[in-house]
């Protein structure tokens, strides 16, 4: 009984290290193959459109409603200490430092990471990856590197737009529901935000974008045969990228805002 328990724990730890090793190796392969010519610029542009432009409505809507809800919550909480006036500054800091990058990252992870895993996984099970190799095209270089670059570029842009929309969500709720003056609200917002807030947002977003693409592509690349294998890869891509976003967000916050 005890032996079986230790065996299972050991197997679990072994699997964890095996996956960490495999992802690290995959990442190194992306770096080594991707930064050597030829460069597939058209593929990068195509992925920029797919990852960036098409994710804009989802990220925008999420940010708008989150900004609005945040304003309501802070107003309600602040009223307990007669501190309703902090709504604009807290909404702005909360959106830019935390909610913008994290929620934006999670929304894009759900959309893009799953799509990447499904697309590459299907290519694998239908032998399209093998076909690429026989046509002298390195699949990691042709399929993965453009997605990682596009994702790392798109996410900071998406998050910046999302942050702005989130603040506007707070402004909308603040002025229509909470009685704030719009000019005063914006002045308060701008007064409290610093360059560091924006920088941290962009750093986090770039990091999350890279995680999303790597986990999506990794799970697609190593998906097992058949439709079930692709389904599992898609789920694993979303779960792993979401967990990594949340975990790395903590460590990035520690690093960027040392208490």
């Amino acid at each position: 009984m005890i032996f079986r328990f230790f065996f299972k724990v050991g197997a679990l730890i072994f699997n964890l290290f095996f996956i960490i090793g495999a992802v690290s190796r995959f990442f190194l392969e992306i770096i080594f193959t991707g930064f050597a010519p030829p460069f597939y610029l058209k593929e990068i542009m195509k992925q920029l459109y797919r990852v960036g432009y098409t994710s804009l409505p989802v990220v925008g809507l999420t940010a708008f409603f989150t900004g609005g809800a945040l304003a309501l919550q802070i107003f309600e909480g602040g009223s307990r200490f007669n501190a309703e006036s902090v709504v604009p500054s807290i909404v702005a800091i909360g959106m830019v430092r935390e909610l913008g990058p994290v929620l934006g990252g999670l929304m894009v992870a759900g959309r893009v990471s799953a799509a990447m895993a499904a697309e590459i996984g299907t290519m694998k099970v239908t032998e399209q990856l093998d076909a690429l190799k026989t046509l002298s095209i390195e699949p990691v270089k042709y399929l993965v590197f453009p997605r990682v670059v596009a994702s790392a570029i798109s996410l900071p842009i998406l998050v910046s737009v999302g942050n702005t929309i989130g603040i506007m969500g707070g402004l909308f709720v603040g002025t229509t529901r909470l009685g704030f003056d719009s000019q005063l609200y914006l002045l308060n917002t701008l007064e409290f935000l610093t360059i560091d807030d924006f920088t941290s947002s962009l750093v986090k977003a770039t990091f999350f974008g890279t995680i999303i693409a790597i986990m999506g592509c990794f799970n697609g690349f190593y998906s097992k045969r058949g439709a079930e294998g692709v389904g599992r890869a898609t789920t694993a891509a979303v779960v792993s990228s979401s967990i990594l976003i949340l975990a790395s967000n903590y460590f990035l916050t520690e690093w960027l805002f040392k208490p």
């Binding site: 299907t122 239908t126 032998e127 399209q128 093998d130 076909a131 026989t134």
Partner: peptide, 13 residues
């Protein structure tokens, strides 16, 4: 120097 035809054709969708 070679060409290959895969079982399911493996065309790029």
């Amino acid at each position: 120097s070679f060409g290959i035809v895969f079982q399911g054709a493996a065309l790029f969708d």
